[in-house]
Write a protein that binds this DNA or RNA. Structure first.
Lengths: 337, 337
DNA sequence: TGAAAAATTGAAAACGGTTTGGCTGAAAAA
DNA sequence: TTTTTCAGCCAAACCGTTTTCAATTTTTCA
């Protein structure tokens, strides 16, 4: 059913019908009600592509999905979805091309030029992130999930990674730990730098020096968590505590400790960062896992919200949110032996 | 830059330019090359919304995301992305509304009517799935990931859940286990029924009867895996083996067994279904986990491929793929004590 | 060489809405 | 009563492409 046809059925002009449905003020309430009722009854809904062409709005927020297909991703998107479900906005997932085939910048450029999205969410930015510079230059609204030091105005939402890890590390030091290992995320991203910095600052403020031999970084997998932890623990002077970047890394650390007959919370302490997954909870691990916690899903919801604000005209300069991170102590941390 | 303007720059009509860029045969190779070069040089790319309006194609495949935000989801999408990256097709994630607010059927109906997608992927269908009936009735191309018994022609891709679980269960029985527990996925979905059926058939073919007291179902979370396993193991006549629906459930089972001082692979055997996640591998668990295995990511890739075939005219009736599932035996299974 | 066929190209009509600017008639103001 | 104002509605232009149909040029072939 097309607008023209529908308008005829209702006995009004396409103009009035369009206005009635889009909530413009210059149409009387009685008319609006009549149109709305008829639309439902006759099953009319505007052709979205025509609307998009005419209005220039794409009705979608773009999210570029890395090749790793991170498990965080689904949670973040679920959160976005929660906020967007009531809006006329969908989430467009853009696959990241094979890095050999196409430059990542090219992908963003094409995405902007194709006008498929009204805004883009940029994940895990680097301190000097080219994507941010590009999007700003192209005039595409965007929100950074994470932080960047780049000298370009942009909206962002981030959690206080530095503060969180600093607090976690300080706690371990307070418990008497002196050799603390750090399993960080992939090097390069700002969040990894912030965590690194928090780790160092905690040491510094207690007048001790972190051991670079005990600091590793890589993907958040059980596998890497295990490998790093295992190799650290097998050193002549092993760590008595771990700060792990994710729940998956923590699983690996637990496994490594067990495989060497060490008891977690007694022989080795562990604190990890928990993004709050419904299917794997820190509280349920054995022993329960002390964690710095911040809901990835909540971040997704809020990011979606902020993007909507951005699209309705709020200045990116006003949109800067730094979320505090909880530190929840459970059984995996204890005084050094 | 608009087509008209660009055409003028190249010294051709919009018609010819459009044809040249879309690869129509009635344009000479020299002209095509000239246009292609100029498009790159001048940075012209067609307004996607105009194209969509004119052609009636949306250029996107819809995936409805459940509220749970399953971790499987990201893997499946990453797989889809791998296939779609080279196409002019994106993935549209449609958030599932709050069930109180809107009927799921309404969501699908609106999605179809809004013409935002060219095809839809339906996940975890039920034997008699309303969504399938609706989409067929509305004439929207769709692919079912999973199977349904509904009497409506439709394309589908599924893994052999019944066969997998039957084989896994049979193996346990062959090892001497007689009391085997089953932690299935949420009741209602066909895959859960198929697994149930495989579980029963394995028993049947060995002339034994499964104990309904040892069969549970629910979300694939560590938490539920633990709770079910724990309650089963605390029964007066506990199971000596477990068949678990997912890696997360298996983590819970491991935890429950450990919490009761039972050694996995010796006191209790476990086989789980592994969807092959990059961040959590069965081989790395301690002890390594025996598993029925099928890559979720590969399924996503193939589903995307099949949807593209569907869109280029292949009949849904021809598209039925049943993937075999590997059974990989590791340390978590052993003879009954 | 000239007619017919084939290869190129272009003008203009869609696609299905939104929005500008104008029109109408009734209420308000003069 | 006449003029002004304004709520309510409409005609037509426009968004930026693709595609039909026709025109033109080039090639083929008798």
């Amino acid at each position: 059913m097309k607008l023209k046809e529908f308008a005829k059925q209702v006995g009004l002009s396409p103009t009035t019908v369009s206005r009635a449905l889009s909530g413009y003020p210059e149409v009387s309430e009685t008319t609006r009600a009549r149109v709305a009722e008829a639309a439902v009854r006759l099953g009319y809904s505007p052709n979205i592509n025509a609307v998009r062409l005419k209005t220039g709005r794409a009705g979608a927020i773009g999210v570029v999905m890395g090749r790793a297909g991170e498990f965080h991703f689904a949670e973040f998107m679920a959160g976005m979805a929660e906020r967007l479900v009531a809006e006329e906005t969908d989430i467009l997932v853009i696959p990241m091309a094979d890095p050999n085939q196409e430059d990542e910048m090219q992908l963003y450029r094409r995405l902007v030029e194709s006008r498929r999205v009204d805004a883009i969410i940029v994940h895990s930015p680097k301190p000097n992130d080219e994507r941010i510079a590009l999007l700003h230059e192209l005039g595409m609204p965007f929100l950074v999930h994470g932080r960047s030091a780049i000298d370009v105005p942009h909206a962002w939402l981030d959690i206080d990674n530095e503060g969180a890890i600093k607090r976690a590390t300080s706690h371990l030091i307070d418990l008497g730990h002196r050799r603390i290992a750090m399993i960080n995320g992939r090097a390069g991203a700002t969040y990894a730098l912030h965590r690194d910095s928090g780790f160092r600052k905690a040491h510094q403020s207690h007048g001790i020096e972190p051991d670079p031999q005990l600091m590793a970084s890589g993907n958040f997998t059980d596998e890497l968590g295990f490998r790093f932890a295992r190799s650290f623990l097998e050193q002549p002077n092993p760590p008595s505590a771990f700060v792990a970047g994710s729940m998956m890394s923590a699983l690996g650390v637990y496994r490594a400790a067990r495989s060497l007959g060490l008891q977690i919370g007694r022989d080795v302490s562990v604190i990890a960062h928990d993004d709050v997954f419904p299917y794997l909870t820190a509280d349920n691990m054995v022993p329960s896992l002390s964690a710095t916690r911040s809901s990835m899903r909540a971040a997704g919801t809020r990011c979606a919200d902020l993007v909507l604000q951005l699209l309705s005209g709020r200045s990116p300069l006003e949109i800067h949110e730094l979320w505090p991170v909880e530190l929840i102590l459970r059984e995996s941390t204890g005084p050094v032996r």
